[in-house]
């Protein structure tokens, strides 16, 4: 039971990271491999806000997410848009964007190593136990999960209940047809990319409140998020959330039942299973 709850609490944060990535890939068609660095950067921002100004990381999101939104937007506008314009085919854009975001991943990681150093970082926020069903869990984890659920709920309302949200979903389904119904596709793409960055940053702020982080861990999170996105079906928000919770469960189960050193192996086992059985994602429809 405690595995299930711990797994779900972890999965909540994963879900937010993966939803950010799936927005970027599903709408802007950019597989952003530097997304994990964005997450780590948010962790450091949250730490700085907390230790210098005493700002609670959950409220820190109000500052961190917009900052990441602006940064992600600038990266898309000045770094990736030229590649979108230059690409002759979807395949070429894919290769180019993978290489550039790899570059950004290393560049950001290098900068953070220089500025913050390579040490493990942690701080104490709501470091107390709450009992759930007779077992104790860190209050910071519970708060992070609730905040993640709230943010996901807000995003859902935006995408499914507002005009602009619908436009963004239309671009995800078919950019060419979306243009025909007067959606400004480049603008929607840039917006989705920036929004995806902001969501991941929000996840980073929450993560930092209960997780020991360091400047080099971004790539691990990028990989987990990518695997979640594929499991859930590219561009599918609900699929990503379910897949994230599943991954949180699987990791926690493997870590506590077999060996904590095998979390990546657990992630991979799930990934291979999905690739072999349902490459279109758990909820994806097969397209020809």
């Amino acid at each position: 039971m405690s595995i299930i709850i711990t797994g779900l609490l972890l999965g909540g944060t994963y879900a937010l990271i993966a939803v950010g990535l799936t927005l970027q890939y599903g709408v802007a068609r950019i597989m952003n491999l530097a997304n994990g660095e964005n997450l780590v950067f948010a962790c450091f921002m949250a730490l700085w806000l907390f230790s210098t100004f005493g700002i609670n990381p959950v409220f820190g999101i109000v500052l961190i997410a917009p900052a990441s939104f602006v940064l992600s937007w600038a990266i898309y506008r000045f770094g990736l848009k030229p590649l979108v314009n230059r690409a002759k085919s979807r395949g070429q854009l894919e290769v180019d964007s993978i290489l550039v975001t790899f570059g950004l991943m290393f560049a950001f990681q290098g900068l953070m190593l220089l500025v913050f150093g390579g040490r493990d970082q942690t701080y104490h926020f709501l470091d107390m136990a709450v009992p759930i069903l007779g077992q104790n869990y860190g209050l910071n984890r519970v708060v992070a999960f609730v905040a993640a659920a709230l943010i996901a709920g807000l995003l859902y309302m935006f995408l499914y209940r507002t005009r602009y949200g619908t436009a963004i979903r239309a671009v995800a389904v078919d950019p060419v047809s979306a243009r025909l119904v007067a959606v400004d596709v480049p603008r929607a793409s840039a917006f989705a990319f920036a929004l995806g960055g902001a969501l991941t940053a929000a996840a980073g702020a929450l993560l930092s409140s209960y997780y020991t982080f360091n400047a080099a861990m971004g790539v691990t999170f990028t990989m987990k998020a990518l695997i979640i996105v594929i499991m859930g079906g590219v561009g599918d928000i609900r699929g990503a959330i379910i897949a994230a919770l599943l991954l949180g469960l699987a990791e926690t189960a493997v870590a506590s039942l077999i060996d904590p050193g095998l979390t990546i192996a657990a992630t991979y086992a799930l990934f291979v299973l999905v690739l072999l059985i349902r490459p279109q994602g758990i909820f994806g429809r097969r397209v020809s």
Binding site: L99, G103, L104, L111
Partner: peptide, 20 residues
Amino acid sequence: PNHTSLVVGLAFIAIVYLLP
């Protein structure tokens, strides 16, 4: 020695934009 990641990152970026 602390700049290797940065160099790798910039090399990737330079290849895509300057020497595709």
